[in-house]
Simulated assay, not measured.
Amino acid sequence: MVFLRQDNASDAEDSISTRTLADMAQQWSLPVDFNGDSTFILSGDRIYFMDGRNRLLAINATNGSIAWEHQAGLSSGPVLASGNTAYIQHGSRILALDAATGRTRWDYSARGKPSGLSLSQGSLYALDPGGMAFSIDAATGRTRWTSRSKVGSPSGDSVICSGILFAGAKPASRTDESDTGLFGWDVATGELVWRFPHKPREDGLGWKLIAGGDMFFAAYNADLLAFRAA
């Protein structure tokens, strides 16, 4: 099956639909409300979608019915999922939701609104506004570690590559270039093990990071960087 987002310019309703790979025959279609940042992810038999009314919808991938919904807020961050749990950020809080029922498994309060929330091998990772990385046990919501070292103003995504958490920081002001660039923390210990100083040529929304194999790529506006982590 292939899942499609259909964002209609006409008066017709926007929808998420599924089609067969063999002949692209539609199996089901679900009308939804999109906003400019609406995305969806697939995990197990659930599609998780944040709609234009700030609701997290858990959709049955087999028939398109809504299993449950969770009212989020304007400050909600990315939705992540693994196994029988979905994770969502509400401002300074990170919630784990049961994939079957939508009930809260645990609720973690961070020090300010985290950035770069990511999930890998049973742990969640993010940076707090003060520039310190931290890790949470994805099953229990308990803190695994908090880094002793901090960076500048955390901004954008984070990725896990070759056992290292990579994230970026931008200048706190136009005159402040300290602790700016890309950083890497050991995912097992939280020790800062790598740094690449870099001042973006112009201000932007933040670092965009993706990883593949032993490589990761970082973009900040027109700046594109590539690194081999192993």
Rank of each mutant, 00 (worst) to 15 (best):
F3M: 06
R5N: 12
D7G: 06
N8M: 11
A9R: 13
E13W: 09
S15H: 13
I16P: 00
S17E: 14
S17K: 15
S17M: 15
R19G: 09
T20H: 07
D23Q: 09
A25I: 10
A25S: 14
A25V: 12
A25C: 07
L30V: 08
L30A: 03
L30G: 03
P31W: 06
P31R: 09
V32I: 15
N35S: 14
S38P: 06
T39Q: 14
T39V: 11
T39S: 14
I41P: 01
G44Q: 06
D45R: 02
D45H: 00
I47H: 04
Y48E: 00
D51V: 02
G52R: 02
R53L: 10
R53H: 11
N54D: 13
L56A: 00
I59V: 10
A61G: 08
N63L: 03
N63V: 01
A67I: 12
E69G: 07
H70W: 13
G73A: 10
L74T: 11
A81W: 00
S82W: 09
G83C: 02
G83W: 01
T85E: 06
A86S: 13
G91R: 08
R93N: 11
L95T: 07
L95W: 10
A96I: 01
L97I: 00
A99F: 02
A99C: 03
A99E: 04
T101D: 00
R103L: 08
T104M: 10
T104Y: 04
R105K: 15
R105N: 14
D107N: 14
D107E: 02
S109M: 11
R111L: 12
L119I: 03
Q121R: 15
Q121C: 08
Y125W: 12
Y125L: 11
Y125C: 11
L127W: 09
D128M: 09
G131Q: 05
M132P: 01
S135N: 04
I136M: 03
T140Q: 12
G141P: 04
G141Y: 02
G141R: 05
W145D: 06
W145M: 07
W145C: 07
W145S: 06
R148G: 15
R148W: 06
G152D: 01
S153L: 14
S153M: 13
G156R: 07
D157R: 07
C161V: 02
G163N: 05
L165Y: 05
F166L: 08
A167F: 15
A167P: 05
G168I: 09
A169H: 02
P171T: 04
T175E: 15
E177I: 13
D179E: 14
G184P: 10
G184D: 05
G184N: 07
D186G: 06
D186E: 13
D186F: 05
D186A: 12
V187K: 11
T189Y: 08
T189I: 08
L192T: 07
L192E: 15
F196T: 12
F196P: 09
K199E: 07
K199N: 11
D203H: 10
G204L: 02
W207V: 02
L209H: 01
G212S: 13
G213I: 03
D214V: 11
M215L: 12
F216V: 01
A218V: 11
A218H: 10
N221G: 07
N221Y: 07
A222N: 12
L224N: 11
L225I: 09
L225N: 05
A226C: 10
A229F: 03
